[in-house]
C-alpha cells in the first residue's frame, strides 16, 4: 500500500456511489409502506445536502457521484463528456452558492435521464442486482485520472458507497479486484448500508481498504450519520474517533456457481475457489492429476473422494 501523509490543507476528492437499483428500492419501500420514489427522494435530499457540505468544507474539495443501477453504472456528476443532457437552463439564483447549485442541478438532471432509460434493466442475467463492481471500477478510474494530473499530491481521494442492494455473488471477482486496486491506490472505501442485510463483499471492501462500514436503518437518520461519520476527511480521521468494524465477514464466493461459501476447494496453482471438486481448474485450465483429492472430513458424503493423494491436489479452503 502507498504511504500517504495527510495534512490540514489537503483537498479531498469524494466519489460517492449511489445504489439506485429499482428492485432493491421497491423491496425497501414495501417494507416501509411507502412509494419507492418518495423513499428515494427522501434519501436524495439528504445525500445532496451531504455533498454540498463536502463542497462547503473547502473550496478545493472535489466531488463525483456515480449511480449504480441494475445492470449498469453511470456518472451523474461530473457529467460524462458528450452526454446529451437536457441541461436545465442556466437559472442563476441569488440564494444559492453557484457551485452547490451547479452540482445539484446536474445531478438531478442526469438522474432523471437515467431513470427514464430502463433499457436492459430487466435482463435475466442481472437478476435485479446492482452494478456495484462496475461503479467501483469507474470510481477508481476517475480517482486515478484525477491523481495523475495532480502534481502536488494534494488531492486525497476516498470512495463512499451508499448501498441498498444485497450482495451479488456474480460480481465477486470484479469487486475483489476493485478492492485490491483501491488498497494499492490507498483509497479507502467507506460503506453506508441502508438496509439491515449484511453486505459481505462491501464489509470486506471497507476492511481491506481502510474505510468505514456502517448500517443505517432509519431513512431519516441518514443525513446525521453522513455528516458526522462520513464527512470527516482523511486528515481529520487521524484524530477523530471513528467507528470500528468489530466483525468482518470474510466469506468468499465460489468461481463456479457464484455462491457464497464457508468451505470450498482452492486451485493450488491460481487460487481460484470452487464449491465442488472438479478435475480441471476452470480458471487456469490446470489439470489436476487424476487421483482423487485427499479426504476432508467435513465434506458431505456425496462428494467424498477416494483416499489416494493427488500429485497436484486441490486444497480445501476453510473459513479463516
Amino acid at each position: 500500500m502507498k504511504d500517504v501523509s495527510y495534512s490540514e490543507d489537503d483537498s479531498n476528492l469524494l466519489v460517492v456511489i449511489l445504489d439506485i437499483n429499482p428492485f432493491a428500492w421497491a423491496r425497501l419501500a414495501k417494507a416501509r409502506q411507502l412509494s419507492p420514489s418518495a423513499l428515494l427522494e427522501q434519501l436524495l435530499q439528504q445525500v445532496l445536502l451531504f455533498l454540498n457540505a463536502h463542497l462547503a468544507l473547502k473550496h478545493e474539495n472535489r466531488l463525483a457521484l456515480l449511480a449504480s443501477q441494475a445492470g449498469k453504472s453511470t456518472f451523474l456528476y461530473p457529467p460524462p463528456p458528450f452526454a446529451h443532457l437536457n441541461k436545465p437552463p442556466q437559472t442563476r439564483d441569488a440564494n444559492a452558492y453557484p457551485r452547490f447549485k451547479d452540482a445539484d442541478d446536474l445531478i438531478a438532471a442526469s438522474l432523471a435521464a437515467l431513470m427514464q432509460d430502463t433499457q436492459g434493466i430487466e435482463e435475466a442475467q442481472h437478476k435485479g442486482t446492482s452494478m456495484i463492481a462496475g461503479a467501483l471500477s469507474l470510481a477508481l478510474c476517475y480517482v486515478q485520472r484525477i491523481l495523475k494530473v495532480d502534481d502536488l499530491h494534494k488531492i486525497k481521494p476516498r470512495i463512499l458507497v451508499l448501498s441498498v442492494s444485497p450482495d451479488s455473488p456474480l460480481q465477486y471477482i470484479p469487486i475483489m479486484n476493485s478492492i485490491f486496486s483501491a488498497q494499492k491506490l490507498a483509497v479507502p472505501i467507506d460503506v453506508c448500508k441502508l438496509t439491515q442485510d449484511e453486505g459481505v463483499f462491501l464489509q470486506q471492501a471497507a476492511h481491506i481498504s481502510g474505510g468505514m462500514y456502517m448500517t443505517v436503518d432509519a431513512m431519516d437518520e441518514v443525513l446525521q450519520v453522513l455528516l458526522s461519520i462520513f464527512l470527516p476527511d482523511r486528515y481529520s480521521r487521524t484524530f477523530l474517533s471513528v467507528p470500528d468494524q468489530d466483525q468482518v465477514d470474510f466469506r468468499a464466493a465460489c468461481f463456479c456457481h457464484k455462491k457464497i461459501i464457508d468451505i470450498g476447494y482452492v486451485c493450488s496453482v491460481c487460487l481460484s475457489i470452487f464449491c465442488a471438486w472438479s478435475p480441471v481448474c476452470s480458471t487456469c485450465k490446470t489439470k489436476f492429476s487424476f487421483g482423487k483429492p485427499t479426504v476432508v472430513k467435513r465434506l458431505p458424503p456425496a462428494s467424498r473422494p477416494a483416499s489416494r493423494p493427488a500429485s497436484r491436489p486441490m486444497t480445501p479452503l476453510s473459513k479463516s
Binding site: 462547503a56 468544507l57 452558492y97 455528516l227 481529520s236 477523530l240
Partner: peptide, 26 residues
C-alpha cells in the same frame, strides 16, 4: 447572510468545521 456564513465557516480549522457539521442538523 448565507454567503457570509459559508465564508466564515471556511476560516475554521478542519476539526471546527467537523463540529459545526455534526451539530448543524441536531
Amino acid at each position: 447572510k448565507p454567503a457570509t456564513c459559508l465564508a466564515v465557516f471556511r476560516l475554521l480549522p478542519s476539526l471546527g468545521k467537523q463540529i459545526v457539521m455534526s451539530i448543524l442538523y441536531n
